[in-house]
Design a protein around this nucleic acid. Structure first.
Lengths: 203, 203
DNA sequence: ATCGCCGCTACACGAGCGTGTAGTAGCCTA
DNA sequence: TAGGCTACTACACGCTCGTGTAGCGGCGAT
């Protein structure tokens, strides 16, 4: 994930795999294309990683380690004016992993949940079901990445570019900094579920 | 999307395709498996739909039409105590389409945006960038579906079951019915972006 | 009656995939 | 200097995929 060509072949293969996995998804990224991108034969890929899944595992481990090392920008509201392309690639790879439920994806989502639970404890927000609260909240934060293409299309500009990125992030802040549904509406939902829980009073 | 076997072969193929596309994704659902599931030969599939992509288009059109006919539960906060399995399948299919950016997915997301813009106009919520606001808000609502597997895993129960569904939906209401970030934090983000926009005052 | 169309099946084709195998050049050790 | 290990390539295998083709039974129209 650093300089282009003065890396070991193994590292170059891993970087190419990470890139193509992130861009196309696991299935659509072929070992031949990965090898081509890394400038090696497909046999060498097999030599170093055993199989496509072995390569995938190596990517998982690497991506998880890098994102940990870099810090948890992923999980915070921290404002990023300019995201490093390498980090963006890691993000996309891990988003793919989360959507698909791989080990690395699960681990990262768990970490986000844990982090969010700690954050929740520092606030004075009162919730009935903290676990569900942080889980859904985390999923919502991630949606800005999972729905990246749709958001870019609807906004008319790439959300990876500084301008689109700013619009998206500021929108999320506006959403989270004020009540979107009224207390009356919330009450209504609560009542609806309460009515479902209790056996119908009569009929 | 109605009874199992007293349908025309064409309709059965379409239903099976919708199911397998939704469950496995477009690529992983093969024409042979779809034909098998529908109880016909793979040649008949080709006879009726021309190609896999033709079948896909038919599914798009059907799913979009059905979801329109049924109503826009998709786009509202309406509480659903028990979701019809057929509707759930449609949802999953369309979610896949949105994640992948197909024509039907784009159309549905556009419709959600439009609907959300109308809704926003009826409220007294003040936002700087309405387009971005409703886009991100819509993405966040969808995240409860795109992250379905992760949410189920973290909650320890299937969010498609009534119990998990209720927890998830109530959590989303709690999130949207109160400020999550403080005014100070929101201000901080605004300032950070304002500082980026203006050429650095000195130095 | 027969002709043609429609719903439908069986089977083959070619491409692309992950994987397996054989072999080579170079370096490190004994 | 001989042996062996490591990095690496070329090429073939077998499978699965979407697609193509040939043909068959039944039914409605002439």
């Amino acid at each position: 994930m650093s300089s282009p060509s003065d890396l070991t072949a193994r590292a170059r293969i891993r970087d190419s795999a990470l890139k193509l996995f992130a861009e196309r998804g696991i299935d659509r990224a072929t070992v031949r294309d990965i090898a081509l991108d890394a400038g090696v034969s497909s046999g060498l890929l097999r030599h170093h990683f055993g199989s496509k899944e072995g390569l995938r595992d190596a990517c998982d481990e690497f991506a998880l380690g890098e994102i940990t090392r870099i810090g948890s920008r992923f999980t915070t509201f921290q404002v990023l004016d300019r995201i490093d392309p390498g980090v963006r690639l890691l993000q996309r790879y891990l988003i793919q992993s989360m959507l698909e439920g791989s080990a690395a994806g699960n681990a990262l989502f768990d970490r986000m949940i844990e982090y969010a639970e700690q954050w929740l404890a520092t606030t004075d927000i009162k919730v009935a079901d903290p676990r569900a609260f942080v889980a859904v909240l985390s999923a919502m934060k991630l949606s800005m990445f999972t729905m990246r293409d749709q958001l870019s299309r609807v906004l008319g500009e790439d959300v990876d570019e500084p301008s689109g990125w700013a619009r998206m992030l500021q929108a999320s802040v506006e959403i989270f900094s004020q009540p979107i549904v009224t207390p009356a509406q919330a009450e209504q939902v609560r009542n609806a579920f309460a009515r479902l829980d209790s056996p119908t009073p009569e009929e």
